[in-house]
Design a protein around this nucleic acid. Structure first.
Lengths: 154, 154
DNA sequence: CTAATAGCGGAAGTATCTTCCATGTCGTCA
DNA sequence: TGACGACATGGAAGATACTTCCGCTATTAG
């Protein structure tokens, strides 16, 4: 929490969110401060945890991960132990992009990327329903990605 | 689709996915090729669209967006026109991170980031249920983010 | 076997990064 | 009001990295 962000910090954050490979010189120029100051500001944003990471967004279709699936999961029992075991197991499944414990008709919501439907069916049968404590799953195939992973507005 | 990715390309992609600010020299050193070759490879990965963007991941809690909500949406009518109008409208809502047309009990799934529950209630009442063609929404508050936006495995 | 093509790494000029330091600004306290 | 302290800023400079050019090698096709 801690330190406040002034107008300059916000500008840097937004610029790096749009293009994480901007050079310090380019940043400084756009924000209209000296490279030295910009360097210190940016460094602080990293050190203080405002920027968790900088990631290249790999185009899913280019690497045979063009199919997106949302899955609702219901567990057998709603005990803390069941949740912990489930979460531990799902962290190992690399095709799971999101896994959120939610309030409502499901216990967890998953966002999964796979190559195609056939790929998903195999994964669903071999890995998802085999997860510890899973009573049922409900699959929502994504037919159109209207907005995917939009940058955070702040 | 087009051009193939060899072992070196994959390494570069994975490294940049983990740290998008790696310098060309660091990349080259890790992948064990010359800076010149590495520069050419990386440039091609961008030009050919394998890397859609490089983004700084801003920590949501640090910028008052610590509350995550999943929302299922059902429209009044399932006509192409209804879908188009809805999608056009939702693209303007900056707090919507994901919006996917799905097959199943809902028409759309939304992933939304807001400051807190109060914030969400206001947005839900003023903006979500006011979207064109919305019959009903079902809200799933996220109580725990087990995995959020994990890097793509390929 | 020869030639064409594509990819590689070395080299060098240019640009950038990163640190140090002097200067300036703001707020506090005497 | 004035002096002081804490902090942030920008300039400068050595070290580093970027980007392009060019010659070399390997692979493929004829």
């Amino acid at each position: 929490m801690s330190s406040r962000l002034d107008r300059v910090d916000l500008k840097i954050l937004r610029l790096l969110q749009n293009n994480g490979r901007l050079s310090n010189a380019e940043l400084a120029g756009t924000v209209a401060i000296s490279p030295a100051t910009c360097h210190r500001r940016t460094q602080r944003l990293f050190e203080d945890g405002f920027i968790a990471a900088v990631r290249a967004m790999v185009a899913p279709k280019k690497v045979a991960k063009g199919t997106l699936v949302m899955v609702g999961v219901v567990l057998d029992r709603s005990t803390p132990e069941s949740f912990a075991i489930f979460e531990q197991a799902i962290a190992k499944l690399k095709f799971v992009l999101d896994c959120h414990l939610v309030a409502g008709d499901f216990d967890y919501f998953l966002k999964i990327r796979v190559g195609d439907m056939e790929d998903f069916n195999r994964i669903h049968g071999e890995q998802l329903i085999a997860l510890p404590g899973v009573r049922q799953t409900r699959t929502f195939f994504v037919m159109k990605e209207v907005v995917d992973n939009a940058p955070l507005e702040f």
